[in-house]
Amino acid sequence: MHISPELNQKLDRFLADCQKQAYSIAFFSIKNASDSLDVIQNTMIAFVKYYQVKPEDQWRPLFYKVLQNKINDHFRSTKKWYSLFTSPKEDDLEESPLNSQESLMSSPTKYFESGEINKNVSSAIAELPERQRQAVIYRLWQGFSVKETAHIMNVSQGSIKTHLSRALVNLKGQLGAIYE
């Protein structure tokens, strides 16, 4: 895989811009620092290998699409091994990384140094079901269109609207005061 110095510089800038947010997205879902770094590494490798030739303006949605696929791959492989030894619980994927003090302590992120509002919003988003949280992250945080968000999450545009609407109802229930 030969990359010209100019393209290498562009890719470096792009990945540097994305890496913190991509890691945060992975960590929100996976809830484990080391596994999240694995996912980021696999994402960067796949992106550089297959999509470096694409026009630059297409890189962002493609990068997050790859990221979401790698997160899903991680869950698939974990589930396969995990199911050999335990009986699966339906709410495993819905558990939030911010729900327990233990996960807070093991997180490399200093979650709540940003004040009470940020703490409440982060916690509320983290507590959303997986799909609702993804819709909020890609649509409201990353600013992708409904179409792009649907492509990244590999669902229909109608599903995105449903997930988003439910997520906002949930968030409003928990953060009502902030929205008034």
């Binding site: 979650y111 940003s114 982060s122 902030i178």
Partner: peptide, 18 residues
């Protein structure tokens, strides 16, 4: 508030992770 909070969340990653 969502964007501000999540921006803060990702920009506050510790130095080791970065």
């Amino acid at each position: 508030p969502i964007k501000v909070s999540l921006d803060k969340y990702s920009s506050d990653l510790d130095q080791e992770t970065v």
